[in-house]
Write a protein that binds this DNA or RNA. Structure first.
Lengths: 124, 124
DNA sequence: AGCTTGTTTCGATTGCTGTCGATACAGAGG
DNA sequence: CCTCTGTATCGACAGCAATCGAAACAAGCT
């Protein structure tokens, strides 16, 4: 029983505070608990929209895994919709944001993305 | 420009036929095309529900990555709902099903899951 | 053939989500 | 202080999706 491959990641609690939770071994290692399934499903949900996935890929493929909103908002939907999607990615923990003067920059949260990738690793 | 890490996977077309499409390099490698984003978003969407994620983890963690419906349907929702979710996982290409006598067995489709994992691999 | 058990499909309902235009907020520069 | 540009929030609406009970289908049994 390989309980290795545990990954530490930080998630936003409903009240806005942060808590570190262990999540998760590869799916092949055993059934997910109800709580872990909810956490991970929320992350997958963040990437379950084509527009969001494109926004995420634009940020991730930028130098340093960081991009200005102004550089990535050309995805075929209105500006409020772009902002809405970026907020969802941020709420799910996949992106963080930082205002620098006039512009806002979004960055990928590597540990969270790594946790999703590790969970889908099927090697036995 | 590392266009390595391409993964071949088969998806169900709307008409039910199968087509092999190349998908996808790691997100860090460049922006997703609109078409690729739609394909991958559909897969992530399949795992974006807690009940579905638990069903998937139950199948994936069974011996041989295969499980009878009867072995995994205890997830707190009605039996028709379980069947509905398994169908969605199947339509997304993450599971396949086979009837053997009275029982139906669902199996994970390793190449599709590997494609998702590879796409989220952030190492540069 | 009829019964029983396992699984899927159907129809309805309820809640969620993506989208937009309008508006508000933030910072920079006149 | 006012305006301009970039970004976020609000409110509304339309479509989708999770869920259930009822009913249909499939296979094995008697």
């Amino acid at each position: 029983m390989s309980n290795s491959q545990m990954v530490e990641l930080t998630l936003l609690e409903p009240d806005g505070s942060e808590s570190a939770v262990p999540c998760c071994p590869p799916i092949t290692a055993g059934e997910l608990s109800v709580a872990d399934a909810e956490k991970m499903a929320a992350m997958f949900k963040a990437l379950s929209d084509p527009v969001r996935l494109r926004l995420f890929s634009k940020v991730a493929s930028h130098a340093g895994g960081e991009a200005c909103v102004c550089d990535i908002s050309d995805v075929g939907v209105s500006q409020p919709t772009v902002s809405h999607h970026l907020k969802k990615l941020k709420d799910a923990g996949l992106l963080t944001s930082e205002r620098r003067g006039t512009w806002v920059y979004y960055s990928v949260e590597p540990s969270v993305v790594a946790a999703m990738s590790a969970m889908l690793d099927l090697r036995n």
